[in-house]
């Protein structure tokens, strides 16, 4: 069922499904009279590729821009600049109406399964709704597919007529996943899909996500602050800090050899549920600076233990360090 690592690698290179280049999102800060006094620089020149049947994990702390990145790709919020190339076309240049057909192929699963399902609709209808919007199949075909997806995601078909409140958090997240699958997408953005769930339920949902990825040949953009979860599910990980992607590497590489000082601190800060695996902690001081007025030069220099003179003035760019392992830091 699960593709082994080497199979996945051989699949990789040519099967880039989606290319994101220099994505930017600035939110204007407007006074009550509409005068713009500044910008929140939420996402700053982020680039990456998504590959078929593979998962890119996006990690970072709150406010680092990982969710904004995910939403910008689907144009749930309009990015300020950059390009998102899907099937050779820059989807950011399309009018909303033309974009509609691509939206079918790019779906999203949200963090909070309690607020992302319409409480007035039965779960069957909820799963059929996206198919209706995209005019897929006849009514009975849609119903059949909804039943099928319920079964596939581990919910009994006879629960088709139930309402969301009758389900637990884990089940609701399954319904959210079934809904995203309904229109047969090729890309799914998962924004903290298991963060609201208890550990025993979390593992059920993670296993489901892995199974359907292979079955439906899906590319995932998996956004999470939980590094152990990302490590488990992602093939490649991008680390974000204050709107910038500071490091990107294949998962095993990133954990074995983290290059950026922020990645090193982040990895060392994870509490490990194993007493024999204790290691030296790198505790970085202070808080994340405000994205309204980010530090000049490298955004991390205010908290970086290795900061040098040039870090304060020159912004480092992403550079290839070894195959597939990129880092934006003056140390390398």
């Amino acid at each position: 069922m699960l593709l082994k690592q080497h199979d996945k690698e051989s699949l990789q290179r040519d099967n880039s499904v989606l290319q994101v280049r220099n994505l930017k999102k600035y939110f204007p800060i407007a006074s009550p009279f509409g005068r713009v006094s500044g910008h929140v620089k939420a996402v700053e020149s982020v680039s990456f590729d998504l590959f078929e049947s593979r998962t890119l994990g996006l990690v970072g702390e709150s406010g680092c821009g990982k969710s904004t990145t995910g939403r910008s790709i689907l144009r749930l919020i309009e990015p300020s600049d950059g390009s998102v190339i899907y099937k050779g076309e820059d989807v950011l240049k399309l009018k909303q109406k033309q974009f509609q057909k691509y939206r079918r192929e790019m779906q999203m699963v949200f963090q909070d399964p309690h607020s992302s399902l319409n409480p007035k609709k039965r779960i069957g209808e909820l799963i059929e709704e996206p198919m209706e919007i995209h005019k897929i199949g006849t009514k009975s075909e849609r119903m059949e597919r909804a039943m099928d997806l319920l079964r596939r995601t581990g919910i009994r078909e006879d629960q088709y007529f139930r309402f969301p409140h009758e389900f637990s958090g884990g089940q609701r997240q399954r319904i959210g996943i079934a809904r995203a699958l309904a229109v047969d997408p090729s890309v799914i953005v998962l924004d903290e899909p298991v963060s609201a769930l208890d550990v025993s339920i979390q593992s059920q949902v993670l296993n489901l996500l892995e199974e359907i990825q292979d079955e439906f040949k899906l590319s995932y953009l998996f956004i999470s602050h939980d590094l152990s979860v990302v490590r488990h599910i992602a093939d490649e990980i991008g680390v974000m800090y204050l709107g910038h992607m500071v490091e990107k590497a294949p998962t095993d590489d990133l954990f074995a050899n983290p290059l950026h000082p922020y990645t090193q601190a982040l990895l060392s800060a994870i509490p490990i549920p194993d007493r024999k695996q204790r290691r030296e902690r790198i505790i970085i001081k202070g808080d994340v600076p405000s994205p309204i007025d980010p530090p000049k030069g490298c955004v991390f220099h205010t908290r970086c233990p290795f900061a040098m003179e040039q870090c304060k003035t020159v912004t480092p760019v992403m550079q290839q360090h070894s195959t597939g392992h990129e880092v934006a830091c003056h140390l390398y």
Partner: peptide
């Protein structure tokens, strides 16, 4: 045991499926 086994380990085998505890509380 179930709880300890269902957490993805930061040093565990990534290819292995996660353990689950069946059902809900």
């Amino acid at each position: 045991r179930g709880l300890l086994q269902s957490i993805p380990k930061i040093n565990g085998d990534r290819e292995q499926k996660l353990h689950t505890i069946k059902g809900v509380v």
